[in-house]
Design a protein around this nucleic acid. Structure first.
Length: 360
DNA sequence: AAGTGCCGCAACCGCCTCCGA
DNA sequence: TTCGGAGGCGGTTGCGGCACT
């Protein structure tokens, strides 16, 4: 027994909208508004269209101040940053780009931005592999790629993200993510119930944590994360990896799911139970699904790294390949600057790529 | 000039959430 | 508390235009 259709499919026109239909819909809404009922609207104005179709047409094309195409560099940056932070929440991303619709941004991402980044990333990976073979000792490749940005940052513990620093300022428009505070406010607004939580460590110490957590996942994170399908109930704005959410405090940050993980930190998890290499990728994948069951970073698989690269990093660095996981997972407890550097690295890398693409 | 393949975009589909009865 | 309708959203599809052969 399927869901009842929202309209009579047989008597509804599909396909592209004609100028006449557009005009009818536009003039009616401009005069009377939607009346709070999209389903009834097409009958009122004599359109043989589904109410949902009318809504979509209005929101994406007919309403005033809609922009199409011509995405700016700032917009690219915002889209990428938010995609990394919250995944494919196009409506939320669109809300930060005045005049843009979620559909537009989604299309732009799928057809252009993703490919752009992917192409460059593959180049970089090949270059890295090449340089590793040459035996460039010790350093983490991602860190070395981005040392300049990090080292030039005024705050070594929380380097200003390029996006946040350069986010376009829209006057008289919706707030942009021009600072961490406003971003946090937005997330609170969107996600509702978040809390600042102290972190209890296994050694009995408690550290302040300025990360925002969904309250329900704090109080019962174990139960929540044991329910695979129910994991989607976790506000995914948090669960999908808001790296940019972390404040500029020097306190540790920790991701709620890890509180109940048998390992204290993600790095520890990687180091422990080192009995087979496959367990890393399996756990990685599982946690990706936990964090973002339906919204993995589609098209950004490169952010996880290919398995060869992954294993290579595990071997070389004794399991501290947090730079791979950090895009997908939350920052684990970090007390050292270098660790934090590694966590934010991939995001920096993306911005570098954007800049690179722009300049080539 | 015709055929073919690719790409981008508009629109649809179906699931999920919200809200009121 | 439950249920059903409507809105909202993200994923997917299909068509039209363009480039290439």
């Amino acid at each position: 027994m399927g869901r009842a259709p929202c309209c009579d499919k047989a008597n509804v026109k599909k396909g592209p909208w004609s100028p006449e239909e557009d005009a009818k819909l536009k003039s009616y809404i401009e005069q009377h508004g939607t009346g709070g009922n999209w389903i009834a609207l097409p009958q009122k104005i004599g359109l043989k269209r589904c109410g949902k179709s009318c809504r979509l047409r209005w929101l994406n094309y007919l309403r005033p101040n809609i922009k199409h195409g011509g995405f700016s560099e700032e917009e690219d940056n915002i889209i990428c940053s938010l995609y990394i932070s919250i995944g494919s929440r196009w409506s939320i991303i669109a809300a930060q780009l005045p005049g843009r619709t979620d559909n537009d941004i989604k299309n732009y991402w799928n057809t252009r931005l993703k490919k752009k980044l992917l192409g460059k990333q593959r180049k970089d990976q090949q270059a890295r592999k090449g340089s590793k073979q040459k035996g460039t000792a010790g350093s983490n490749s991602m860190v070395s790629d981005n040392n300049n940005i990090i080292n030039n940052s005024p705050n070594p513990y929380w380097p200003e993200l390029p996006l946040l620093a350069s986010a376009v300022q829209y006057s008289n428009q919706e707030p942009s993510f021009n600072d961490h505070a406003s971003l946090r406010k937005l997330l609170i607004k969107l996600g509702g119930r978040f809390s600042h939580q102290p972190i209890s460590h296994d050694d009995g110490t408690i550290s302040s944590c300025d990360q925002l957590f969904p309250i329900e996942s704090i109080s019962s994170s174990k139960q929540v994360y044991e329910k695979d399908s129910a994991a989607s109930n976790i506000p995914s704005i948090i669960s999908s990896g808001p790296t940019v959410l972390a404040s500029n405090t020097t306190s540790s940050t920790q991701f709620a799911p890890l509180l109940d993980h048998p390992y204290n930190t993600y790095a520890e998890m990687l180091q422990g139970d080192n009995n087979s290499s496959s367990c890393y990728s399996a756990e990685l994948e599982e946690m990706v699904m936990y964090n973002n069951p339906q919204r993995t970073l589609d098209g950004l698989e490169f952010l996880y790294g290919d398995e060869a690269t992954l294993m290579h990093n595990v071997d070389r660095n004794g399991g501290t390949w947090g730079e791979m996981g950090s895009l997908v997972y939350q920052p684990v407890a970090n007390s050292d600057y270098e660790g934090l550097q590694q966590e934010i690295m991939p995001q920096e890398s993306l911005f570098n790529e954007l800049s690179y693409q722009r300049s080539h």
